[in-house]
Write a protein that binds this DNA or RNA. Structure first.
Lengths: 329, 329
DNA sequence: TTGAAAGCGCTAACAA
DNA sequence: TTGTTAGCGCTTTCAA
């Protein structure tokens, strides 16, 4: 009795129907009356039935897999980019549990229509968009119902939504609370939806607090953080704080700030975003807005596992301030 | 003719044998004469046959999977630890290609015998030890032939071996070349095989160059790097360079050094090890010894995919100096 | 709406 | 050493 795992035959037997009917119910395909559906579902629950994925794949000719699309980053960077590491780490145990496969696709910010077509055509459980803009997201969603985005994007595409705007707003508020009055911002890249929300949070806070807007766009990479922070500092040497839209860029920003001879946090306080490994490696370690990336990734997978997510579905996640040395004067 | 994929039946037919015989050859199990083996193998090559993993799993009752054992790190850290991210990134495409599964096991540095027993018993393709000491490695190897370690460990256990000793030696040599004469070292944890090799390289270089030995053990984490570097500096304020056995620790060491008011690299030059994301996030960015982690991880998987690796097998990888600002005076 | 039946591609007894 | 024969658990026609 210990290692026994019920098969669909057991379910069919318990529900008093044929194997095919049980299969139909389990797979949510038409061809079973409501009362029968209920009986089968009860049997499934009762027995704790879970389909054997190998048998499924063999019989149907396709493997259950989630396609993860990592837009906007070079393939080589996937292994080291802190965000994607966390995304994968969050997904892996859920996928494991469901005995499903992870297919990772790295593509540039302008994926070819052919790529999208092919991935959508071969998708089984669905597609997770790791960092896609609205245009790409819509194109996927048009071809494949089972799509979920790790970031808020086109309104119709189901997505995980962290409180990016609120987080950015809170970061600026914190800086203001610490007495800073010339708070600059290094945003993410122009087309990026997360970047847009964080930018909005900054702008709103600046307005509400009556602060000058001192900002520029970056690229979510360390190099861009360095370059943008340098430029900002040159343009306005009086800057006494920086809100940087991701930790990798913030690590670069701190390098840029100290390279000018300024001290962090004494001369310029810095708050990043993400709470990735980059935050603690920076010098000084970064105060940052923590994004629950692993939880968001796990939730995205669960959504796909549970069936076709409803159009426009949103799942919300909080963002929290983590205080480290880059703000503690 | 485009999407046709030969089955084992096609192979058997082409080789003029039964399906079972073909299966035996493909799976390298006894029960086929040498001439027959050759014929079947020829047919496999000719047709480009690749077994259907779903069918295999269904028929045999077990899924082809590689068990990756991440010893010595808390489960929560896996997603963010730069080393493991790179290991996973290196393995993923190879596994994908072979249609095999990745099972990740995180365990403390002293895994229970029960854990080892269970994983070894359920292993199919084999086990990759990500960072295990000789004792754990030997215990796994005793119970399961298909084991390969990502680091040199017990002599009998097949392993990937980067030139840790040579890398450490070269790092100290570089520091010496830059005019440094009081070169300290932050080693890895005592029992760690990689740490031991890097320590050896440091000690040899110190001896060869006539330098004082100024060292202490760390833990391969940023916190440990910070603490150990602080201690070293307190003990010997004249230190003018540091060789730190991993980038995460080196990022911490740089934080510790600058916290004392010293400048990097003017007062103290620093060289790390790995070339992970931590190296570029540190401030200043770290000169480091690059370890080809992704390649090593891919090679480990291929070794397992190719069958039982031979006892004591070693695969060697070079380590290269990558120069960044932490040494450029 | 339901069920019967035929495999999916492979492994593993069992016989020969 | 080899071949024959049952399935593994499931999906999917096809008939009823």
């Amino acid at each position: 009795m210990t290692g026994f795992r019920p098969t669909i035959n057991d379910v069919a037997l318990a529900a008093g129907v044929s194997r095919s009917t049980a299969s139909r119910v389990v797979n949510d395909v038409p061809g079973a009356s409501d009362p029968v559906r209920a009986r089968v579902r009860a049997a499934v629950a009762e027995l704790g039935y879970r389909p054997n994925e190998s048998a499924r794949a063999l019989a149907s000719g396709r493997r259950r897999a989630v396609d993860v699309i990592a837009v906007s980053s070079g393939a080589g960077r996937l292994g080291t980019h802190p965000y994607f590491s966390r995304v994968l780490a969050g997904m892996m145990p859920v996928l494991e549990e469901a005995d499903a496969q992870l297919r990772l696709h790295a593509m540039g910010s302008e994926p070819g229509a052919g790529d999208i077509e092919e991935i959508a055509a071969n998708a089984t459980l669905g597609v997770v968009l790791a960092d896609a803009g609205p245009a790409v997201a819509r194109r996927f969603h048009r071809r494949c119902r089972r799509v979920v985005s790790m970031v808020p994007t086109a309104a119709s595409v189901p997505g995980m939504e962290a409180d990016n705007t609120g987080g950015a707003y809170a970061a600026v508020g914190e800086l203001h609370r610490l007495g800073r009055r010339r708070i600059a911002a290094v945003h993410g890249p122009a087309g990026n939806p997360c970047a847009a929300d964080r930018r909005l949070g900054y702008l709103r806070a600046a307005e509400d607090l009556g602060l000058p807007v001192l900002d520029a766009d970056g690229d979510f990479c360390r190099e861009g953080g360095y370059a943008t922070a340098s430029r900002l500092l040159e343009r306005d040497p009086g800057i006494d704080a920086m809100f940087v839209a991701c930790d990798l860029m913030a690590a670069g920003a701190v390098q840029a700030i100290t390279a000018t001879g300024r001290r962090v946090p004494e001369d310029v306080s810095v708050i990043g975003f993400d709470d990735s490994i980059a935050a603690v490696c920076a010098n000084p370690p970064l105060t940052t807005m923590r994004l629950p990336v692993e939880e968001m990734a796990a939730a995205a997978i669960r959504l796909l596992l549970d069936g076709s997510p409803v159009r426009g579905h949103r799942q919300y996640f909080p963002v929290e301030l983590v205080t480290r040395r880059s703000t503690r004067a």
